[in-house]
């Protein structure tokens, strides 16, 4: 181990006389950003996510998603991220510069008179405050948009249980309802010492027996509640997450872009006990026509089932 740890580290990473070229860095960042957006967009265009991925995320960033809200969220996320990166470059740059330049071993003499400067302190209070305003304004606008659940065309009641979901359609679909639980294959494989390789199970832990079916191009409102403990309904590709409380109703809306029909997957996002990790959410987005057809089939199948229920 060298005598002075700080020194060899710095020497190795930054050659002598190294200067940070802002233009170089920003070019590099914009290239990265472009690549990321392109990747996310490509998977979004593909519509149905590949079987390997539960969503349109590239595996290390938020998914761009398939709703207006998820895409707005993605953009605001990236905006704030790059602002943070820019601040980090400046602040970490100043720190690293000090670590390199002002070393005792290099004969640096401390400037003990440098103890206070009202001017710089005011500057570095005001500038961050301005940056915050730049971030807060679009965020506030987006909040207003997210909270506007008026004029929804389909309303579905979502009830959470330990550890499954119940979906009940209202309006035209009144009477249609079912439970949605972890698919059998995943449920066998996830047992302790099951001996089944999770990689051999399609959509391991992200598959259910009966997915929620919704139409694309229509504003779908979910009314969430719970029968026992707090759960949370989350589909990353919709930018939609909301807690479900026992005894209370919270709401959420989704408007999937037409052309993005397909299967979207998510999980319960609030610790809800033993099988919290095993109550996935799967949404089957169909065209409005396809959805209407499906709903009509469900209603037709309903009558005998209801009779059976009465008999029981």
């Amino acid at each position: 181990m060298p005598r002075d740890c700080g020194r060899w580290w710095v020497d190795r990473i930054l050659p002598k006389g190294f200067k940070i070229e802002m233009s170089m860095i920003s070019k590099w960042f914009s290239r990265l950003a472009l690549a990321q957006t392109a990747l996310a967009a490509a998977s979004a265009v593909a519509g149905t996510p590949s079987s390997l991925s539960p969503n349109t995320s590239n595996g290390y960033n938020l998914p761009l998603g398939v709703t207006e809200l998820s895409q707005d969220i993605y953009h605001i996320h990236m905006e704030v991220f790059w602002i943070c990166v820019a601040i980090a470059v400046v602040v970490f740059g100043a720190m690293i510069y000090s670590l390199v330049k002002f070393r005792k071993s290099q004969g640096a003499i401390p400037d003990t008179a440098m103890v206070h400067s009202t001017k710089v302190e005011i500057i570095w209070t005001i500038i961050p405050a301005l940056i915050l305003v730049v971030m807060a304004v679009p965020a506030a606008e987006l909040i207003l948009k997210m909270e506007d659940s008026r004029n929804s065309e389909v309303t579905i009641r979502v009830t959470a249980y330990q550890w499954k979901w119940q979906y009940q359609y209202t309006g035209a679909g009144e009477g249609v309802g079912y439970f949605s639980t972890l698919a059998r294959e995943s449920n066998f494989a996830r047992r302790l010492g099951s001996g089944i390789d999770p990689n051999s199970v399609a959509n391991y832990l992200l598959d259910v027996d009966h997915p929620l079916v919704i139409p694309s191009g229509k504003k779908v409102r979910l009314l969430l509640t719970s029968q026992d403990v707090i759960h949370a309904w989350w589909i990353p590709d919709f930018g939609a997450k909301r807690d479900a409380f026992p005894g209370f109703i919270s709401e959420l809306w989704i408007l999937v872009h037409p052309g993005s029909e397909g299967i979207y997957r998510g999980q319960c996002a609030a610790l809800c006990g033993r099988d919290h990790g095993f109550m996935p959410i799967v949404v089957d987005v169909r065209t409005p026509d396809g959805f209407d057809k499906w709903l009509a089939e469900q209603k037709a199948a309903l009558k005998p089932a209801q009779t059976a229920q009465v008999l029981n």
Partner: peptide
Amino acid sequence: VKVFNWTATMWRGSLSF
């Protein structure tokens, strides 16, 4: 402000590690 002040503390100091 805290992080900036800390950075300014190291600035033009005589650092050992």
